[in-house]
Design a protein around this nucleic acid. Structure first.
Length: 400
RNA sequence: GGGAGUGUGCCCGAGUGGUUAAAGGGGACGGGCUGUAAACCCGUUGGCUCUGCCUACGUUGGUUCGAAUCCAAUCGCUCCCA
């Protein structure tokens, strides 16, 4: 494999059709024009997760090689809902919400990508124009059997779960984006393979050159089993504080380490390969490998200093079981007796007072490290002390 | 349009008139052990002013001393026929 191609193929699973990318690159070089690299995104969530870093890094690699990332903001399709990997449809979003999410996304993307050197397009631009006639034209060339080849449709269909016609049409809309922007290459996760291929079909029907597609391994979440996603709550966000980024990474199962190293660490490919090999050979202790991984990720999105600090704080809190230094404070009310469950709900993110009571019963609540057993405590017993819920949530109680 | 099913707690799923806030499993959370890993053990998993009260088995209404369980209507979903 030639050196200039290698970074472009990193972490790719499928690169289709065979040889097409190389051909495209050669043509582009000869014509001295950049390739248009499409990445679609649904502006539905709030945080950009570490899972995104895989494709964003790939865009950065293309950018490095002189090509042009074209980001498609699915402001139209967000109102339809992509069924990828989901068993149910997702809610539609308002335009205002979509615009707000988009701005937030770009800010987070800029941690990986030079967002001043990308093209940003909204698919409402052409999909609004498409109209019923255009939609029917798109749909005329696809069959139900073709659509049902898509894995998650297939599963739902055979499992007797509903698939709305709207969802069924989604891949056509997304594929049409490729026609509209003249994509040369489209990248995405492995779950997007079908959609990316639809883009090729529609480009062919439109009589234009067909894009190459490239799918990428999906990063597993902190649970080590399911795909990292915001809705599953198993994610590390690019916006996470250093301590959270470090801590969440430390909580992943050992088995997830190789994948995280490859997909998320941001370390050079050879370095990653070496570390994974050392780990597999038992030359590296798993804990050490995980600390190094947590450090690498934290440093990647913050700084070496911030990562150092996060590592220190982590050691103090979880190895030495000390109360962390920077913890939020909460002002106690004037009442002489304090209802502890209310305190937990108000300041430690407990969902309900009933839940708080259960936590107290279960020994999860501590005051300056001592297990709390009372539901109500006199105010004086709380002032100036640190209330703790579980292993990682603390609040210092003060007077106003 | 006709017919047959089905709708239970975060998810799956049992329950077909009376200790049912609802078996069991998964997930999650918490405690122990530990490397905030895995495995393992234990506990919790509707709300609250908590030895009690309130709300809950798609929705609405009804039968009954009493319903998730029976009836009616209604909404959603699946399958079959057209």
């Amino acid at each position: 494999m030639s050196d200039h191609l290698r970074p472009l193929l990193r972490n790719a699973v499928d690169v289709l059709p065979q040889g097409a990318l190389e051909k495209r690159l050669a043509e582009a070089a000869a014509a001295k024009r950049p390739l248009r690299i499409k990445l679609g995104l649904d502006p539905t969530a709030v945080s950009v997760t570490l899972g995104w870093s895989v494709v964003l890094s790939k865009l950065a690699a293309f950018q490095e090689a002189g090509h042009l990332p074209v980001l498609i903001v699915g402001d139209f399709t967000a109102r339809v809902g992509d069924p990828s990997g989901k068993s149910k449809t997702r809610p539609m979003l308002s335009l205002e919400q979509i615009a707000a999410n988009e701005a937030d996304y770009l800010r987070q993307f800029s941690k990986i990508l030079d967002i001043d050197r990308i093209e940003i397009r909204h698919n409402s631009e052409w999909l609004n124009e498409l109209g019923a006639g255009g939609m029917l034209d798109l749909a005329a060339k696809s069959t139900l059997a073709q659509m049902l080849e898509r894995d998650d449709f297939n599963k739902r269909y055979t499992g007797g779960a509903p698939i709305s016609l709207q969802e069924l049409l989604y891949p056509l809309l997304q594929g049409y984006d490729s026609v509209a922007i003249n994509a040369d290459v489209e990248i995405g996760g492995t779950d997007q393979k079908f959609n990316l291929l639809v883009g090729r079909d529609l480009q062919e029907q439109a009589g234009m050159p067909q894009q190459s597609i490239m799918t990428h391994e999906l990063l597993v979440g902190t649970d080590g089993t399911q795909k990292m996603s915001q809705s599953l709550g198993n994610f590390v966000g690019l916006d996470d504080l250093p301590a959270d980024m470090y801590g969440k990474t430390m909580s992943i199962p050992d088995e997830a380490m190789p994948a995280w190293y490859r997909l998320a660490s941001g370390l050079p490919e050879d370095d990653v390969a070496g570390r994974i090999a050392a780990l597999a050979a038992g030359e590296t202790e798993p804990v050490d490998a995980k600390r190094a991984l947590a450090f690498a990720i934290t440093a990647r999105f913050h700084s070496d200093e911030a990562a150092e600090e996060a590592a220190d704080g982590f050691r103090r809190q979880f190895a030495e079981h000390k109360i962390p230094e920077d913890i939020p404070t909460a002002i106690l009310g004037p009442e002489p007796t304090v209802h502890v469950p209310a305190l937990l709900v108000d300041h430690l993110g407990v969902a309900s007072r009933g839940e708080a009571r259960r936590l107290i019963t279960g020994g999860a609540v501590r005051l300056d490290g001592e297990t709390v057993e009372e539901i109500d405590l006199p105010r004086e017993a709380l002032v100036g002390r640190v209330l703790q819920r579980g292993r990682r949530d603390f609040v210092r109680l003060i007077t106003g």
